[in-house]
Design a protein around this nucleic acid. Structure first.
Lengths: 212, 212
DNA sequence: CTGGATCCGGGAAGATACTG
DNA sequence: CAGTATCTTCCCGGATCCAG
C-alpha cells in the first residue's frame, strides 16, 4: 500500500494493514493458528493466489507474520503470526463487534465457514449456569469448526480437539447459526431453519444469549 | 468497495470501512466533530477531492455519517458522524494503539497536524499527581490543536476552548512531540529538538509517561 | 496436487483542471 | 468554497502457466 505519509498512529497502522484482504489474512491466522498457503486460501474464498502471495510477503516484511520454511525435502511453508501480529487481536475484535449487527443483512449468496464464528462465540456468548459441570459444545466439524467450553461462568473457544468429550454438536447453515448466536432466534426457530443439535441441547442453551 | 461476500463480522465491517481513506475520514470527524468539506480535506492531506466526495457519499449511504445540508442560502454542508459512526471509536482506538510504536519510524517528510495527537494523548497520558488542582495544557493552537485537562487522576481531551484558562502551551515539530508523548524522550531533550513549553512546565510533567 | 509466478483486462485511486 | 469532470496510473481480480 502506498503510505498515507501522515505522522499519525492510525494512519501508520493503516499503512501496514489497510490493504484489501490484509486483515482477513490476520483473522485466519488468529483463529486457526499457523497455516499453509492452501489452507489460508481456503479460508479466504475469492482471493487470487498472486494477491495472497503479495500480502504474505508484505506482512512478513512488516514483521506481522513469519514464514517458517518447511526447508529440506517436502516441507510446505508455514505462515504464523509474530507477537506483533497477535497484537492485532484488539483491532480484529473491535471490527468484529462493529460489524456483527450487519452480518444478518449480508447478501444471501455470501460464503460461510464455521470457524469464522469462533471469535463471535467468544465475545458474544457467556456461561449463564456457572454451577453446572464443565460442558463442551462442538460447532461444525474438525475440518471446519471449533469447540466451545463453558465452565465456572466463563466461555473459552479452541480448535476442535480430537480427544474432546463433546456434550453437544451444533451444525447448520450460516444465517441460522448467526441469528442463533446473536440471540435473534431461539433454538426452536433455528432448527426450523436447518440447524441441528446433537446431544445435550441444554448445554447449548446454557451459553446462548438470553433476553434481558 | 467490492464486498468480500463472506458471512463473517470482520469481513462485513471491512465491506463498509475497508476502503482506502475511509477510516481516516472517520478519524477526523471523531477528533474534530462535525466538519465541512474543506475542513475535512485539510485534515486529510493527499486525498483527491473526487475521492473525498465518493467516500462521504458511501459513508452516508451506509449510515456512518449524515450530511446536514446548509440548505437555503449560503449554508455549507456539514458532515457529522451518526451513532453508528461514533461506534467506530473502538476500532480507531485499537488501530491507534497498534500503530503508535511505528510512528517514530515514519518517513521524515511525513505530514504532521497537531490534532492527530489528541487521541494518543487521551490513551497514552495519565494524571500522575491527582492531588494537584486541575491543570489545562494546550497543545498547538485553536486553528490546529487541543486542550488537555488533568484533574483527580484522570486526563481528558477536548478541542481548544476560547475561554480556557491555560496553564501551559506546548508546540513544536511532530517527531519531537511524538517522542515526548510516548516517553521516548524527556522535556529537556524535546526542547533541544524544537519543542517549546510556555507557562508551567510542571503541568506538562504531571501527565507525561514516567519510567517504571 | 500443492505452491506459487506471469499475464492481462477492468476498475479504483491519484492528480489536476474546471464550474456553480 | 464545494464539489464535478477528465485523464493517468496503479492495484485488484481472474485465468493461465510453471516447478517441485
Amino acid at each position: 500500500m502506498k503510505s498515507y505519509g501522515q505522522l499519525c498512529a492510525v494512519a501508520r497502522a493503516l499503512d501496514v494493514v489497510g490493504d484489501r484482504w490484509t486483515l482477513l489474512v490476520v483473522r485466519e491466522l488468529l483463529i486457526q493458528g499457523p497455516l499453509r498457503f492452501g489452507e489460508l486460501q481456503r479460508g479466504l474464498p475469492g482471493i487470487a493466489t498472486n494477491l495472497l502471495t503479495q500480502r504474505l510477503r508484505d506482512l512478513e516484511e512488516q514483521g506481522v507474520l513469519s514464514r517458517t520454511d518447511g526447508d529440506r525435502a517436502a516441507g510446505p511453508a508455514l505462515y504464523r503470526l509474530t507477537a506483533r501480529g497477535v497484537a492485532l487481536d484488539g483491532v480484529i475484535r473491535e471490527l468484529l463487534k462493529w460489524g456483527a449487527p450487519t452480518v444478518p443483512s449480508a447478501p444471501p449468496d455470501a460464503v460461510f465457514q464455521m470457524h469464522w464464528l469462533s471469535r463471535p462465540a467468544r465475545y458474544l456468548l457467556s456461561d449463564h449456569e456457572p454451577d453446572r459441570p464443565r460442558t463442551v459444545i462442538r460447532f461444525g466439524t474438525p475440518a471446519d469448526g471449533f469447540d466451545l467450553t463453558a465452565a465456572s461462568g466463563t466461555v473459552t473457544v479452541a480448535p476442535c480437539a480430537e480427544d474432546a468429550r463433546v456434550d453437544a454438536t451444533v451444525m447448520g447453515p450460516g444465517p441460522a447459526l448467526v441469528a442463533l448466536l446473536q440471540g435473534a432466534t431461539g433454538i426452536d426457530t433455528a432448527e426450523e431453519h436447518g440447524v441441528t443439535v446433537e446431544g445435550d441441547a441444554t448445554a447449548l442453551a446454557r451459553v446462548l444469549p438470553r433476553p434481558a
